[in-house]
Design a binder for these strands. Structure first.
Lengths: 201, 201, 201, 201
DNA sequence: TATGAATGAGAGTTCATTCAT
DNA sequence: TATGAATGAACTCTCATTCAT
């Protein structure tokens, strides 16, 4: 059995979230935790049930409910970063990388509403997750500016607005249903907001 | 104190939120209700205390907690609309009207963090309030497009992103402190996102 | 206008229950109070509304909720006594008078379920009403015994059981629907319980 | 005391009411729950206190207040059935079995007023318990009729009246105090009501 | 280490009761 | 005298948290 695998067959283990196991393995649990749980139903009993562990077990790994949410948020952030890097890793243009990121998010919102609701919920509750998202964004913004594509006046404001706008667009997709070419539209608006040309990416 | 006794000095009147009294009167109560209440603390006990009434009194006016939030949200929406119309009422340019609106919001966020936290909280909980905000925004977007200033591809997405971005900017201001010229910066980004020139308004 | 009439047209007045007005007039209010009110819904707000007065007004006449129930119970008792006396007033046989009483109650249960539910509810809540009912019953029991028709061993037990049995029969009628000749059946069982022959009444 | 701490001496176990444990064990808890609780005081806080558990614990076993009452009622019904069967199990005569049952109830009312008040209270609130009682009664009625001892005209009415009358007699005993030979007197009236001879049993 | 019964503070809601008008 | 807004204690129910096993 490879290291980190669930010990006895189908029993999922919450420790995938915190133990010393591979990043790929953490994805499963984090996703499963929120995949079927309705937005706003953040009760730890429900969460524990989804994770396939007893409620008491949660407290062997997290000191409080808040810490659990943080961890789940982090997990979601890690997932998204990997998805983005997979696509934009080799791209040099900051603007293009940002465009790719936004479109990746939008497509995720279209194909995986549960994941998206989980993300939105967690961002609202655990404000700290914004910084995690910001970390990825900041590099692209700075690269885009260096390359002459972006002309924003205040980096923090730019990041905050870009993240909020993208989440808003995702929310619209999830709650109000399909929008044709939503990914390109969102990416275009986001780039324009930064004073950049329309991304071709 | 025995049940039923009302302090006969400063009779608080929750009905300002629902009765047929002047709009100005309603402002006071709505504001007072959330003014000092911490963000996210929507417990009716707290709310009642802030409003200066007993918890049971709330139920003389609203059938449930949800109805209270609706009313508070509506009240905040009314307030903001008035503030905006006061400034941009005579302006014809949609782009300029939008610019004024964004800057008005941003200034409000700077000068009245409590009000702003209340707005953000309510928007999160009572998703319906987005539509109220959207009502004001839609007219400006359409005017701006007719006048050739805006070139957005999808109205709903545009509205959703603009609202989210503005709220995100307000949130930054409130949580992370002062930003020089935050109002102009936010307005500029919002307008650029719509494919418009920088508002001079 | 005849004395005791409601002063201004349709305004029903709770004081009919306690004021110095005729017995006939009291009937109306007591009945109306419980007629449409669901069993067990004894909230004073509801009751006041049914009576057509404000909730505060109730306390001008009754010191507490319990006193109100007592009064309503008394009113119902008065009604039933009148109904019974109307029919059995000229009858000398205690057994026959009891038979008439039971059948009158049973017919009331068949034709007026609301009234009956009100009676049952009130008897449960205001135990004191049992004594009111007992007053009417006792005379019949004693007469029947003098006349050699009844042979009960303990008067209080006999009264308690007769009242409970009759109310039980009424309850069955009201909750489980029609029973053929329910009135005669009930009367027969009640008389037999007292060691009496079947009432012919 | 900090949350979650259970006194480690006398661990109270509410699951005696619902778990798969022996009938004898269930008796204890059900009795303890209502033993000292005043009639009509059905507040779950009180009930929990009587059961020796915290109020939240009740909801680990019952979904709602109503379910608790149902379970308590069922428990009481089980108790009484066992008491009756112990005495009348070997008796063939329906009339005699009924007589035994009534006298058993009456003696219970005399020696255990708390249990009796609990029974009366529960029957009033959870009407469904009447059917449980009826189940035991029906067999005796039918046997008595087959054996020529009973001559009732309508089984449902007979059952309803017998149950009500017996409960009425029990209530008298509990509320108004001692009555000499109450058990025999009640049994005699009940049997007579069914057209039967006086039970000798 | 994993469990889950037990906990109890606190939430939303109801309603008998009071008193200024 | 009639009103009804205001009260607040009490109730049902939820859930984050603890600890004996």
């Amino acid at each position: 059995m490879f290291p980190g695998a669930a010990p006895n067959g189908s029993r999922p283990h919450l420790w995938r979230l915190c133990g010393p196991c591979s990043r790929q393995q953490r994805l499963d649990a984090a996703l499963r935790i929120y995949a079927r749980a309705g937005v706003g139903d953040l009760a730890l009993n429900t969460l524990a049930e989804e994770a396939g562990v007893s409620n008491g077990t949660v407290y062997n790994y997290f000191r409080s409910r808040e810490k659990v949410l943080e961890a789940v948020g982090l997990e979601l952030a890690v997932q998204l970063s990997e998805q983005i890097l997979t696509v934009s890793g080799a791209v040099d243009s900051g603007a293009e990388r940002l465009s790719i990121a936004v479109r990746t998010f939008m497509n995720k919102a279209r194909t995986d509403p549960d994941w998206t609701r989980a993300l939105i919920t967690v961002v609202r509750y655990a404000e700290g997750m914004r910084s995690t998202l910001a970390t990825y964004l900041r590099a692209d913004l700075q690269a885009g500016r260096r390359q002459g594509d972006f002309h924003y006046a205040h980096e923090e404001m730019a990041m905050s607005m870009e993240i909020s706008a993208t989440l808003g667009a995702m929310n619209l997709l999830v709650e109000d249903g399909e929008v044709e070419h939503a990914d390109s539209i969102a990416a275009e608006m986001v780039l324009q907001a930064l004073g950049g040309a329309v991304g071709e990416g």
